[in-house]
């Protein structure tokens, strides 16, 4: 049953956002086609025009990706509200399935689409940067351009680490750190979606329904405040870090070791906040499933 619920939830969210992804796909194809045009044939004017066209389409692509994030977010909210508590709720809530299965299906689907939209936005931003950089560098450096792009990225990492006051770690460490931050962001994105579902559910329970849609916003921020405060408090009391070297990962509770790791060109990542947020997510999930099962009403 859970698989069928997830399938339907995926389709429901996809039906509202697929147009944006098709539009981005078309733009991606146009960008690829533009790569094969030799702008130098038309001299400096052609190169300038090519850069302008590529910059413009890159900008539109990033803008569309940004719109897709907003649209996905709106879709996740409206789909949950409509499918659980409005007319479609008469069907959904009369299905012989557990409320936890219903919620889990919505959560998996909603989180997937929200994370996908963020991922696509990042991909578009990075892709657009490289796309425009490639055009500029290809003109002046020919086949050397890929090395130039690589050097450009390394230089950016150096500047970033310098600004943070730490020794620049090797690229492999930096990539591992980036992966951990991305994972942490993904977990927090999933918790964000769950908090939205919690707020929507609470606003359909007595006496919380009285505030209407304003209540949804208030309950969301209330829930987010509780989760963030709990995670921050625990993070202050207990600090667990992962120290990343080029060869392995080690756990430590010592801030001195973390400081030393950064000075040695290693990376360190605090996981306390991450697991506290994950623990909160379990509680929010159980509370929301209970509310759906025992308290919430379909309109």
């Amino acid at each position: 049953m859970l698989g069928k619920l997830i399938k339907n939830a995926f389709k429901a969210n996809a039906s509202t956002v697929y147009n944006v992804y098709i539009a981005m796909g078309i733009m991606g194809v146009v960008m690829l086609v533009l790569l094969f045009i030799d702008w130098t044939k038309w001299g400096d004017t052609g190169v300038g025009l090519g850069l302008a066209i590529k910059a413009l389409i890159s900008f539109v692509l990033c803008l569309t990706a940004g719109i897709s994030v907003i649209m996905t977010f709106m879709s996740v909210i409206s789909e949950f509200r409509r499918n659980m508590f409005e007319k479609e709720g008469h069907l959904t809530l009369s299905l012989p399935v557990r409320s936890s299965s219903l919620l889990l299906a919505k959560w998996v689907s909603g989180s997937f689409w929200v994370l996908l939209s963020y991922f696509v936005l990042c991909l578009c931003a990075l892709g657009s940067f490289l796309y425009v950089a490639r055009h500029s560098l290809a003109v002046v450096q020919g086949n050397e351009m890929y090395n130039s792009i690589y050097n450009l990225v390394i230089e950016m990492i150096d500047q970033f680490c310098e600004a943070a006051g730490v020794v620049t770690p090797p690229l492999s460490v930096f990539l591992n750190l980036a992966g951990l931050y991305a994972f942490s962001g993904a977990v927090k994105g999933c918790v964000f979606v769950l908090l939205v579902y919690f707020a929507l559910t609470l606003s359909h329970c007595r006496p919380f329904h009285k505030l209407g849609k304003a209540g949804e916003v208030i309950y969301f921020f209330g829930g987010a405040f509780v989760v963030t405060t709990f995670a921050s408090l625990v993070t202050k009391l207990v600090k667990i870090y992962i120290v990343i070297s080029e060869t392995n990962f080690t756990f430590t509770l010592s801030e001195k070791e973390v400081e030393a790791a950064w000075n040695l060109g290693f990376g360190a990542f605090s996981i306390t906040n991450l697991y506290c947020t994950a623990i909160c997510a379990v509680f929010v999930f159980l509370i929301t499933a209970f509310l759906i099962d025992r308290k919430a009403n379909a309109n």
């Binding site: 007319k87 479609e88 069907l91 299905l95 012989p96 399935v97």
Partner: peptide, 20 residues
């Protein structure tokens, strides 16, 4: 609960299928 929902066929007074 789940057991009663599995045995009850419910027709509401509104349309409950998604438009799509």
């Amino acid at each position: 609960g789940i057991h009663t929902k599995a045995r009850v066929a419910y027709l509401p007074d509104c349309t409950y299928f998604p438009d799509r």
